[in-house]
């Protein structure tokens, strides 16, 4: 599916200098957003200490040293979810992607990382023809800024003292086609959460706003 990218992807052909405005289509933007989601999710999993450091490996991306998942089960899970997400993004059905961190002992939702996706109206109505212009460099720097903010979140968010699990929730439109491997879920909101708005990235096709909500007191004491 995304292998046929050249037509829709960022046309970073040698003829066009890197700094120049690149033409972005819905397909290309979807690739950027999905890749961003993958790195943002692994960054959260690593930085918040949900999985041990040995489950990750270092990689340079967006001009940053990032940690990507290495543990097999985790890689497979992410691949499955992101592949479905890519399809929904292509059909402009995604409203939000949410990373939910749950304490395993307390069974309480401790953190909720929300990526709200706003698809440009023209791109949704005319998925083939719509083209936007934005330089790749600019998008990369916007993504890098968000990843940095996730990394910095350790400084203000409470310690996840217990063993935690995570889940990915996708908010879609009502009329979306749902494969059998997916099920409806509770939104798993946090009552009386502290909320911190992070930066956003805009490809002119998709605008992704980032926000994190977390419980202030550790579970069981509040």
């Amino acid at each position: 599916m995304s292998f046929a990218v050249p037509a829709g992807g960022i046309s970073s052909t040698p003829a066009v200098p890197a700094a120049d405005n690149s033409v972005i289509t819905l397909r290309g933007s979807t690739d950027i957003v999905v890749e961003f989601f993958e790195h943002a999710i692994t960054c959260i999993l690593y930085q918040r200490g949900i999985y041990p450091p040995e489950d990750f490996e270092r990689k340079t991306k967006y001009g940053l040293a990032l940690h990507v998942a290495r543990e097999e089960g985790l890689v497979t899970y992410l691949k499955n979810v992101l592949e479905q997400l890519r399809q929904w993004l292509t059909s402009s059905n995604v409203q939000k992607l949410v990373v939910v961190v749950t304490g395993m002992e307390s069974q309480a939702v401790l953190e909720r990382w929300v990526f709200s996706v706003d698809t440009a109206q023209e791109a949704a109505t005319n998925p083939q023809g719509y083209q936007a212009q934005k330089s790749q460099k600019e998008i990369t720097s916007e993504i890098a800024a968000i990843i940095r903010q996730i990394t910095c979140s350790v400084s203000f968010m409470p310690l996840l003292a217990e063993r935690c699990s995570f889940d990915l929730l996708v908010y879609t439109d009502k009329d979306v086609l749902v494969p059998a491997t997916w099920e409806d879920s509770d939104p798993r909101l946090i009552q009386q959460a502290e909320e911190v708005r992070l930066r956003s990235v805009n490809t002119k096709v998709h605008k992704v706003d980032t926000m994190v909500a977390y419980r202030m007191e550790p579970a069981g004491q509040g």
Partner: peptide, 19 residues
């Protein structure tokens, strides 16, 4: 909206792992 989640959940972190 619908809130959807993948049925096969992500593997749990290792037993005894401390943050």
């Amino acid at each position: 909206h619908r809130v959807l989640a993948f049925r096969n959940k992500a593997p749990l972190p290792k037993e005894g792992f401390q943050n």
